[in-house]
């Protein structure tokens, strides 16, 4: 077990952690915008599955990875729009409609897969791109600058999200709608437009998150392949206190610990630590860190539908 602290292992953990964090980042950053505008979308997992399937099918049929990614984003957009309609216009209880969306995506992705592909054959996904110069730095280069394009995109999204949320008028409107929709409305901000925008964006990101699995990380599709990633992504939004940086730290913590526990399993030859306990680590630590970390208040209007007529 002393090898755990060797350079190879530590680099390995960091590299895998970053890779593993990618789908969580896409999904959780998208969900964060939805929640900042006041809508919880528990259906992220279902949208991810549809994104994963769409991307895989398109990549199989056309061989064009970017087109496949675009299609996954488009499916995400459609499901995001549906979710917007359900929560904004129909003012449905969001926790429940999200579960419906999850079931729908889970079933439909599997159904379409059985119907149109039947069996699965690995595609050649996005290959790692070594960033010139930076990629040659020992250790650092290996950890940070030798990933596929979707990993870079996911992390590039973080500063963009910070900027949009804190430095633009749109960000101001989003925050206002999530905290005091009545006030935002009286100032001429369309609450429903902003919510539609944010929830749909969340859908697009969930679609891309799913695509990142089939196009870059796994290169295959299987029924229910997300296996809870979407729900963890929702949890990470709470973990991150509704800020892009917080969400990113959460995704990294969760993924790094997951990478760490896999290494512990590899190195722990005599299985002193049962694999089950190793597997609990990311979940337990996420709870523990949040319990002893600082907390931010959730957007005041979260999960509360806004009915213009009643104000």
């Amino acid at each position: 077990m002393s090898e755990l602290f060797s350079l190879t292992v530590l680099t390995g953990i960091a590299y895998s952690g970053i890779r593993l964090a990618t789908p969580y980042l896409f999904a959780a950053l998208g969900e964060m915008f939805a929640q900042r505008s006041g809508v919880v979308n528990l259906g992220v997992e279902g949208i991810m599955l549809m994104g994963a399937f769409t991307a895989f099918a398109m990549a199989t049929w056309t061989g064009n990875l970017w087109f496949a990614l675009f299609c996954a984003a488009f499916i995400g957009l459609l499901m995001g729009l549906a979710m917007s309609f359900i929560s904004v216009n129909m003012q449905a209880e969001q926790g429940i409609s999200g579960i419906g969306m999850h079931l729908f995506g889970l079933g439909l992705s599997s159904l379409l897969f059985t119907k149109f592909l039947g069996s699965t054959k690995a595609i050649t996904g996005f290959q790692p791109i070594k960033i010139p110069l930076l990629g040659d730095i020992p250790v650092i280069g290996e950890i940070f600058f030798n990933h596929n394009i979707l990993v870079y995109l996911a992390f590039l999204l973080v500063p963009i999200a910070v900027w949009v949320l804190n430095k633009t008028t749109l960000g101001l409107k989003i925050r206002a709608v999530g905290v005091k929709p009545e006030a935002a409305d009286s100032l001429g901000v369309s609450v429903s437009k902003i919510r539609y925008l944010c929830v749909s964006f969340g859908g697009v990101m969930a679609g891309i998150a799913g695509a990142s699995l089939t196009l870059a990380l796994i290169n295959l599709f299987q029924e229910n392949m997300t296996s809870g990633i979407g729900f963890i992504a929702v949890a990470l939004v709470y973990f991150g206190g509704w800020t892009p940086v917080g969400v990113t730290l959460g995704a990294l913590l969760f993924s790094l610990v997951n990478a760490l526990q896999l290494w512990i399993q590899v190195l722990d030859k005599d299985k002193v630590i049962p694999s089950d306990f190793a597997l609990m680590m990311p979940y337990v630590l996420t709870i523990a860190v949040l319990a002893f970390g600082k907390r931010t208040n959730q957007p005041a209007a979260l999960t509360k539908p806004f009915d213009r007529g009643s104000h």
Partner: peptide, 18 residues
Amino acid sequence: TYTGNFSDVSLMAAAAET
């Protein structure tokens, strides 16, 4: 390594990579 369930494809991939 074990992933602790029968469907977590993504963790399985991470295990293979490890």
